[in-house]
Write a protein that binds this DNA or RNA. Structure first.
Length: 212
DNA sequence: CATGGGATTGACT
DNA sequence: GTCAATCCCATGC
């Protein structure tokens, strides 16, 4: 399938995702995500792979991780802390449990619906809408119902980098909010982008660079 | 079947 | 800086 995205570009196909998850995590930066009339550019991602214990797939195939081990190019959506939905893109060949967590977006369109779904006032800054994995899922209206749906032809679509995002400045760092495999630098984000979920690089010149 | 722990966020001291 | 909300699911009895 080569279904179109909002701007007319064909959505990324399964072949894009059927590669090493670290490559995909890096290359998804600058790509677009859309759902329910809203869209944004991906500015922060994290990679997860069944070979390391921070990944849900580390425990093997269970009802929860079946999507992770399934076909690449599908959405893996799960609930975090009983409250938030987390949107991931399943990667690597079927049988490998790997995914890219989409952690932040720069809003592109549907800003008003994002604000409404986030329950924010019209005066809320655009940077508040999608600057975190739970926030962007809420802003786009993504729920667990979209788990296992195709990112090429389903309700949630990921498109290629727009021309102005052809070569974004990408920084890597350690992943956020996990307690195992904390040393892996499997987080990627756009340098200096204000929609990134945490100050990156650390705002001040203090010695907290090594903390996370 | 009971329990415990989150790939987070927002409110509050 | 601290902390609670809240639900899915993996694990262990």
């Amino acid at each position: 399938m080569c279904a179109a995205t909002l701007d007319g570009s064909p959505a990324l196909t399964a072949a894009f995702y059927e590669r090493p998850v670290l490559e995909v995590a890096r290359e998804l930066i600058g790509c677009t995500v859309e759902h329910a009339g809203a869209a944004g550019v991906i500015v922060e991602t994290e990679a997860y792979h069944d070979s390391e214990p921070a990944c849900h797939a580390f425990v093997g195939v269970t009802p929860r991780t079946r999507t992770l081990f399934g076909a690449p190019g599908r959405a893996y959506v799960y609930r975090s802390y009983g409250i938030h939905a987390m949107l991931n893109a399943v990667c690597e060949p079927e049988g490998v449990g790997a995914a890219v967590l989409i952690r932040a977006l720069e809003p592109l369109s549907g800003i008003e619906s994002m604000r409404a779904r986030r329950g924010l006032a019209e005066t809320a800054r655009v940077e508040e809408l999608c600057s975190g994995p739970g926030k962007l899922a809420q802003a786009l209206g993504v729920t667990l119902e979209q788990n296992a749906s195709s990112l090429s032809s389903g309700p949630v679509r990921i498109g290629p980098r727009p021309p102005e995002w052809a070569d974004p400045p990408i920084l890597d760092g350690v992943r956020v909010g996990i307690s195992r495999a904390v040393e892996l630098r499997w987080r990627f984000c756009v340098a200096g982008n204000r929609n990134v979920s945490r100050p990156w690089p650390p705002a001040s010149g203090r010695a907290d660079a090594a903390r996370r």
